[in-house]
Nucleic acid binder design. Structure first.
Length: 795
DNA sequence: TTCTTACTGATTTTT
DNA sequence: TCAGTAAGAA
């Protein structure tokens, strides 16, 4: 395409552009000079280097509005990509808000994956697919790979399928199709990796299916091999915007570069210092190379921070300066006040959790002249999810409401996936993977042997598994009443699904009920019990929650147009709805915290080996360490007002006591921004001269006296800096007070249920605290508030 | 086929 | 420690 075409196209729009330019531009008013520059530099490549808390979403949305408002592009000619649905949604809302009216929407604002699905459905045949292809979840993917691995006669024990899945994923992230695997990777997975990858891809095409990686990979391949298709989109997308550019992998990078290579109007927003997904294929190099990749680009730095106090910024900057090869930014703020970052060492992990719990309760009440702070404004950010446990245990016992962010997502839960597999077969009988998943769920007495027979019948007759099962039953190859019922069920449910007299909720309820899936969560009853109307009992502690999730799933169907549309949408949306019923402290990993902010942040577990993670350093060396350091930077910059870093000298790791040294990142915190707090147990306020440290610690704990943190150079450095200021120690923590006035509604011996620990019997009652012997979790003391009698568990 | 018991091995996870 | 799996028993 010649540049004249471009000119013509632009000339055609210029009249309206001039008219549009006269429109008011209130969205520019609230921008600082840097943000404004990023918005107004519309032509050519722009790299917006946006430090933490510098208002990049604001600038990004203003840019979109500006493009439309000046008539440069219509909403459907702007391609705006994000990584998460959440970010996409927020951007959509903010653009709508800025425009003041709801325009026809932006069809091409979404995640990489959502946009690729849309494109791939249009051009599926170019990838050997039909446009109604299904998107496999990770379970399906793994099941498929396991079949291939065992067919290849590989010992799944030495070479787990999970590992192969990881390798293939990695190749896809690097935009490598099976024919392009470099020789250096040939040895992967016992030299069978490339071959199995090819088989896997072939099998996916047979199934008319893709996995997540394919969505991008197929589109990159199509763009590379079909110039006509590519140029069509190059012309259509007049402007491209990319959020979190530092997190793009090779495939995404290629995809973007192909689309932008025509007009080169691409604006990438990101922060090299916040690149924390290298292990998932993200290439910091993409953002570092931007100016070389896109010659003539404008680089705009957003450095004014609107989030944190100067001390917090100073501490974060001090740490990140340890990294080499940064693009370099200096965050600053107009704020002048604020507390220093607090640093405290603890004896062990439990003490750390106890101390943080106490601090949270104190802040909630309001201490040291500070106003009371809502629990919603506090967060604990950990390196690895197993660290959450100590906090959950502690908060459960003191009755502090918390929420865990991240963790297993709603649509990844076993029961939700099972239910969806039923729905998938109902929508498409050809979905063999879905059928395979639920054919013996609930148990129908169909083991390996029976399933092999169905597969064989399928192959011989060239039909899907459902039909194959029917054939096998007809010919007496298989004898199984329950399988008959299932096959007949699918016929019935499909009719029901097509019948306009039924709504989706009814269809879904019928499927889950008639398939026996719901029943499988209850203990089977005898006829006599049913006759007497005895209430059904849950099979295990999880059953209640699982049924609750299914109810939620069915409910969400009521807003859907069709079952197919629902499945389509859900495959790409893996959101977790967090409940906001009451204020709660948030607990999450540092990774999950990216993009969030809280007035008060706790960063526990800053010990070498844990953070920075030993494994990360072993596997990726200097690169790994730098990514860990960026993680530290992300953590600190989440805090608005108060940031508390802590570490423990001893920690139970896999059941063994282990001592460790304070994180090397602690030494990188600039002294002038840090207050070193003295742990209450060690030098307790008012004890006078502290006892010799070695003695104190051996009194506290004997187990780990050999490797003594308190004699370590790291600790001594800390002491030298310490101002020995007494810790704000809450006068009393809740757990020591027993409210004897509270009349317990429970009786000793009563069977009760607890969200986390499951079923148990009350041993003792002390006011509002109960000592309970749990069937699975042992004996624990828990606040009565978290306990319910077995009969009033909500279904 | 399915339930039980012994063993192993263990970050981070936007879609 | 504990969850998730793999081989044995009913």
């Amino acid at each position: 395409m010649s540049s004249f075409d471009e000119m013509d196209a632009f000339d055609g729009a210029s009249l309206s552009a001039r008219a549009m330019a006269a429109r008011p531009q209130p969205y520019l008013d609230g921008l600082n000079p840097a943000q404004r520059a990023a918005v107004e530099q519309m032509d050519g490549p722009v790299l917006m280097l946006a430090g933490a808390g510098t208002g990049k979403t604001k600038a990004l949305t203003a840019r979109i509005v500006h493009l439309m408002n000046t008539g440069r592009a219509r909403p459907n000619e702007i391609l705006a990509v994000t990584f998460t649905n959440k970010a996409a949604r927020e951007m959509k809302n903010r653009v709508g808000g800025m425009l003041g009216q709801q325009i026809e929407g932006m069809p091409w604002l979404g995640t990489f994956h959502a946009i690729c699905v849309k494109l791939l459905r249009r051009h599926a045949e170019l990838a050997g697919l039909k446009s109604n292809f299904t998107i496999l979840d990770t379970d399906d993917q793994l099941r498929l790979l396991k079949q291939l691995v065992s067919a290849a006669g590989i010992d799944d024990k030495r070479w787990p399928a999970r590992m192969l899945a990881g390798i293939i994923d990695d190749w896809k992230n690097r935009a490598l199709t099976p024919d392009k695997i470099p020789a250096a990777d040939g040895g992967a997975y016992n030299h069978k990796g490339p071959e199995l990858y090819a088989q896997y891809q072939a099998r996916l095409l047979e199934l008319n299916a893709t996995d997540f990686g394919d969505l991008l990979l197929h589109m990159v391949t199509i763009f590379q091999t079909h110039g006509d298709v590519l140029s069509q989109y190059q012309r259509w997308f007049k402007y491209i915007l990319v959020d979190e550019y530092q997190d793009t992998n090779v495939a995404q990078y290629l995809w973007l570069r192909l689309l932008a290579s025509g007009h080169k109007n691409i604006c990438c927003v990101g922060d090299d210092d916040q690149s924390i997904y290298g292990w998932r294929g993200a290439e910091v190099g993409n953002i570092l190379r931007f100016e070389t990749d896109f010659p003539g680009s404008h680089v705009v730095r957003l450095e004014q921070n609107y989030r944190s106090t100067p001390h917090i910024l100073g501490a974060a900057s001090g740490v990140i300066e340890g990294n080499a090869g940064r693009l370099g930014k200096t965050l600053w703020t107009e704020e002048t006040d604020g507390e220093k970052v607090r640093l405290i060492g603890h004896w062990d992990g439990e003490e750390e959790a106890r101390w943080i719990g106490d601090e949270i309760e104190a802040s909630q009440r309001g201490t040291r002249g500070m106003a009371p702070m809502s629990l919603d404004h506090m967060a604990i950010l950990v390196r690895a999810s197993h660290q959450m446990r100590a906090f959950e245990d502690r908060f459960l016992t003191i009755g502090l409401p918390y929420r865990v962010i991240g963790g297993p997502r709603f649509y990844e839960r076993m029961e939700v996936r099972d239910a969806m597999a039923y729905f998938r077969v109902v929508t498409s009988l050809d979905d063999d993977l879905a059928f395979e998943r639920i054919v013996n769920t609930p148990k129908r007495g169909l083991g390996n042997v029976a399933q092999k027979k169905i597969q064989q019948a399928s192959k011989e007759n060239g039909v899907n598994f459902v039909e194959a099962a029917q054939i096998a039953l007809d010919r007496g190859i298989l004898k199984n009443r329950k399988l008959e019922e299932l096959v007949n069920g699918f016929v019935r449910w499909r009719q029901m699904n097509r019948d306009p007299r039924y709504n989706l909720t009814e269809v879904a309820e019928t499927i889950l009920d008639e398939s026996g899936y719901i029943d499988s969560f209850f203990i089977p009853q005898t006829d006599a019990e049913i006759a007497k109307g005895v209430e059904r009992k849950y099979k295990d502690t999880e059953a209640g929650g699982r049924l609750e999730n299914l109810k939620e799933l069915v409910k969400s169907l009521s807003e859907e147009e069709s079952m197919q549309g629902f499945l389509e949408r859900v495959a790409l949306i893996m959101d977790n709805n967090t409940d906001n019923s009451e204020p709660k402290v948030s607990i999450m990993t540092l990774h999950a915290a990216k993009g969030l902010e809280f007035p008060c942040v706790f960063l526990p577990g800053w010990e070498d080996g844990l953070f920075p993670s030993q494994r990360s350093m072993d596997e990726s060396g200097q690169k790994g360490l730098e990514e860990e350091r960026r993680l530290a930077y992300v953590g600190i910059t989440r805090a608005e007002e108060l940031c508390t870093i802590s570490f423990a000298a001893n920690r139970r790791v896999f059941g063994q006591w282990q001592s460790s040294l304070p994180s090397r990142f602690i030494d990188e915190l600039p002294q002038e921004h840090v207050d070193v707090l003295t742990p209450p147990g060690l030098y307790g306020g008012g004890f006078g001269a502290a006892a010799p440290q070695a003695e104190v610690q051996s009194n506290l704990h004997q187990a780990a006296s050999e490797a003594n943190v308190y004699n370590s150079p790291g600790w001594r450095r800390l002491q030298a800096r310490s101002q020995q200021r007494p810790v704000s120690q809450p006068a009393e923590s809740k757990n020591t007070i027993i409210d004897m006035t509270a009349v317990s509604s429970f009786t000793v011996g009563e069977r009760v249920f607890h969200q986390k620990f499951g079923y148990g019997a009350v041993l003792e009652i002390e006011g509002d605290k109960l000592e309970i012997e749990f069937e699975k979790a042992g004996t624990k003391k828990v606040v009565a508030k978290f306990i319910s009698g077995v009969d009033d568990i909500p279904f």
